[in-house]
């Protein structure tokens, strides 16, 4: 996993609540057995005027001009600004894979769905929860200022605006450490292999039916 320390990124707005993971990456792309290559199909049904197929070359597909991410000033964005309950629905990790492959490393929203939120951290994406009035303000500034960028400073847990404002955010200490160091948490967990074995032995004795073959 790539480290996440400080990100200075262009902001793209997606002004919708309850964006579900079916919208982030539609079903037909879940047939892939790889982790990469989902970026061109992120938000496929909103982004294009036709229906995408896995493996397709997207360079000449008709774009939906109404979709905010298609507007030229948001090209190359790495910070996604959106509304409440982002990432609800299916647990598909293809959703964060698609957003990462598209170029997003941070997502700012009023709230996230639990499974999606968790999946982001496993892929080096930082989901940031901010209060509605702050998100409203960021939306107006993004729309009013061409080339609007934010600096996401994870070690200090602040989002810095071009106007010099420092907006604090919360992040779980363990997840923060994993992101900053780019740690693979399987390796971290296996440091506790003895504790897992001990637990397992106790359970095997107390609840043998769980271990019947």
């Amino acid at each position: 996993m790539d480290k996440f320390v400080v990100l200075d990124g262009l902001v793209a707005p997606l002004d919708r609540a309850n964006v579900d993971t079916d919208a982030i990456i539609p079903k037909q792309f879940l047939k892939s057995i790889n982790r990469s290559g989902f970026g061109p199909f992120a938000f496929d049904e909103w982004r294009y005027m036709d229906v995408g197929q896995p493996g397709q070359d997207c360079t000449n597909r008709p774009l939906n001009p109404q979709f905010s991410l298609n507007q030229p000033q948001f090209k190359g964005a790495s910070v996604l600004l959106t509304r409440q309950n982002f990432g609800c629905g299916s647990s598909r990790e293809h959703a964060p894979w698609a957003l990462l492959d598209y170029g997003f490393r941070a997502i700012i929203a009023e709230s996230f769905a639990d499974i999606f939120f968790n999946n982001c951290f496993k892929n080096g994406i930082l989901p940031i929860v901010l209060p509605t009035q702050v998100v409203d303000k960021l939306f107006s500034e993004t729309l009013a200022t061409p080339g609007y960028r934010l600096i996401v400073d994870l070690p200090n847990q602040v989002v810095r605006t071009p106007g010099g404002e420092a907006i604090p955010f919360d992040v779980d200490a363990f997840r923060k450490e994993c992101l900053i160091n780019g740690w693979d948490d399987i390796g971290l967990t296996l440091r506790h292999a003895d504790a897992i074995h001990a637990y397992e032995e106790r359970r095997r004795h107390e609840q043998p039916w769980l271990f019947a073959k």
């Binding site: 964060p96 499974i115 999946n119």
Partner: peptide, 9 residues
């Protein structure tokens, strides 16, 4: 439900 990274975990 869990994501694929957690399936691996």
């Amino acid at each position: 439900g869990i994501g694929t990274s957690e399936v691996e975990h």
